[in-house]
Simulated scan of single mutants.
Amino acid sequence: MAVSRFESPEASIAYMKEVAVGRSGFSNWLQVEPVTVWEGQSELLLELRPEMTQHHGFAHGAIVGLMADNACAWAAASVVGDVVTGSYTINFLAPAIGSRLRSKGAVIKSGKRQVVVRAEVWSESEDGVEKLVASAQGTIVPTGQIEQER
Rank of each mutant, 00 (worst) to 15 (best):
S12R: 00
L45E: 00
A136L: 04
N28I: 02
Q31A: 09
N70A: 12
W29Q: 13
V121I: 14
M52Y: 06
E124I: 08
A62R: 04
V21T: 00
Q148I: 03
I140S: 01
S12I: 01
E51F: 12
W74Y: 13
A76H: 14
K109M: 11
L66C: 11
A11V: 04
E33K: 08
P50N: 06
E147T: 13
N91C: 02
G57P: 01
K17M: 00
A106V: 14
A76R: 05
Q41A: 05
I108C: 08
I140V: 10
G111C: 02
L44E: 00
P142W: 12
T53P: 04
F92H: 09
G57L: 01
G98Y: 02
A136I: 04
G86Q: 11
R100P: 08
E130W: 07
V121Y: 10
E51Q: 10
Q31F: 02
I146T: 00
L93N: 04
G128M: 06
L46E: 05
I108P: 03
K109P: 05
D69C: 05
G65D: 01
I108M: 15
G65F: 02
V141Y: 04
V117D: 00
Q148K: 10
S135F: 10
L93D: 07
H56P: 07
G128S: 11
E124V: 06
E47F: 01
A77Y: 08
V84W: 15
G61F: 02
M16Q: 07
V83M: 07
I108S: 07
S78A: 03
V79D: 10
A62W: 04
T36I: 10
V35E: 10
I90H: 13
S12E: 01
R118T: 11
R100H: 14
G40S: 08
V64D: 04
G22W: 06
G144A: 04
F6M: 07
P95W: 02
R100N: 14
I13T: 07
H55W: 13
L30S: 07
F58T: 07
G61Q: 01
T53I: 12
Q148S: 03
R49W: 09
R150D: 03
G144R: 04
S8G: 08
G138D: 06
N28Q: 03
